[in-house]
Design a protein around this nucleic acid. Structure first.
Lengths: 241, 241
DNA sequence: TAGTGGTCTAGACCACCAC
DNA sequence: TGGTGGTCTAGACCACTAA
């Protein structure tokens, strides 16, 4: 029950926050339908229109999916959405292809200064380190290092199989839904290691994407450094509109 | 007057489209207030709520600014908004600074194959070419080439002064409001020319941002190639949320 | 105080889906 | 056919701005 009339915050924001907390807490799980608007309105003690507004905003943020005639559903992780939202690799002609992923290494180790600072944890805190190569048409185009805190993903460093879409793993095994990312882009000469994995000469310019991914509840859950060979591919950004 | 009840498209979309066309056509000019919701509703033959929804969506897309107690205003170009929306240069520590701009050259010439293809014009069509350097703390960090069709910006190639924020010029002198951008990012070795302007060694990796900017009415109005020295600065992207 | 946008409600009707 | 979300309306009241 919401409906405190002393409110400084609008009712629809309170409703949105309450619904969000239920998603975060797992009270409603990905893929499940929410109660309909009238039931939610009755439960929260507001009108249907207020619930509608809250749900509409959540749909705009991709937290729920609304389907006319069927209902409102907790968003399931869609690898294509992620791929194109967080990783817009395109061919020179603008077409998009889904890269394949090969896991190179995978271990438990301290986070270290740089990652710790990015994720807001201690440098000695344990984390799972993964190295991967992404391939397009069988040729390596991205060499990346992914680091996640063991406190948030316990045991991930010991698992045998890491699926290609790691964000699906985060969601389905740990209930962590990645919803935001902050990326810092720069150009670097390829290190010896990166050059080896990408099959290019050491010192070749590579696009470096340092990403901090955030979960629904605002926690920073992943640090990632992607080194991209952009001689034949581009990283695309669409802004505005 | 809208309100055709045979509609396939919702009324609020028709209202939005009609208002957008008035912005594009200059019927309402940047900075000017729109009529209030009731007057617009009466003019279009819809209810206030429908106008409200149309305006709310336009506010979300940054086309108008709504201020409680004052009214709804046609958005004026805000250089800071653009800078951070289209060009998020950040220091290593994440702070943002507005770069200064120096115009290096400025001439009228054919668009050429690459630009013509990007802008959807003919390679022989005339265009204004501008070269600029952007500086942070007096040091060059970005060397960029900006090309715009003479058909859209007639005489720009002959003007003496080009202001630092070129998008303000587009808007105030030509009524062209840049609202979208598509960017392709890659890493390149600095050419001799870029190296000279950036004060770096030839072959140093630079971040290349090839941008096609779109106007409110959907026309592609600018092609731009920015070569960024990212040794001490980053280009930041915020996704999701 | 008058006028604006912001919130909230209540209810009608439509479009779509599943059964 | 019944239930869902989508659109649209009408009207009340609030919050903010400006004169």
């Amino acid at each position: 029950m919401i409906s405190e009339r002393l409110r400084q915050t609008p009712l629809y924001e309170q409703v949105r926050t309450e619904i969000l907390q239920r998603l975060v807490s797992g009270y409603w799980k990905p893929g499940e339908p929410l109660p309909n608007e009238f039931d939610l309105a009755a439960e929260f003690g507001v009108s249907q229109g207020t619930v509608r507004r809250a749900l509409g905003e959540m749909a705009a943020r991709n937290l729920v999916t609304r389907i006319q005639g069927r209902g409102t559903f907790v968003r399931e992780y869609d690898s294509r959405w992620a791929l194109f939202h967080f990783f817009h690799v395109v061919e020179a002609d603008g077409t998009r292809h889904e890269p394949k992923t090969e896991l190179i290494s995978h271990r438990l180790a301290p986070a270290g200064e740089r990652v710790a600072k990015a994720l807001g944890i201690g440098p000695e805190d344990r984390a799972t380190w993964m190295e991967r190569v992404r391939l397009l048409d069988g040729r390596p185009v991205i060499y990346e290092t992914v680091v996640v805190p063991d406190a948030i993903f316990p045991g991930l460093g010991l698992v045998n199989v890491i699926p290609s879409s790691i964000y699906v793993l985060y969601e389905q095994f740990y209930g962590v839904l990645v919803s935001t990312a902050e990326e810092d882009l720069s150009a670097l000469p390829a290190s010896a290691e990166a050059a080896r994995h990408l099959g290019i000469a050491e010192g070749t310019p590579v696009l470096a994407i340092e990403r901090i991914a955030g979960a629904l509840d605002g926690r920073r859950v992943e640090w990632r450094l992607s080194l991209c060979d952009t001689r034949e591919h581009r990283y695309r950004n669409h802004l505005g509109g």
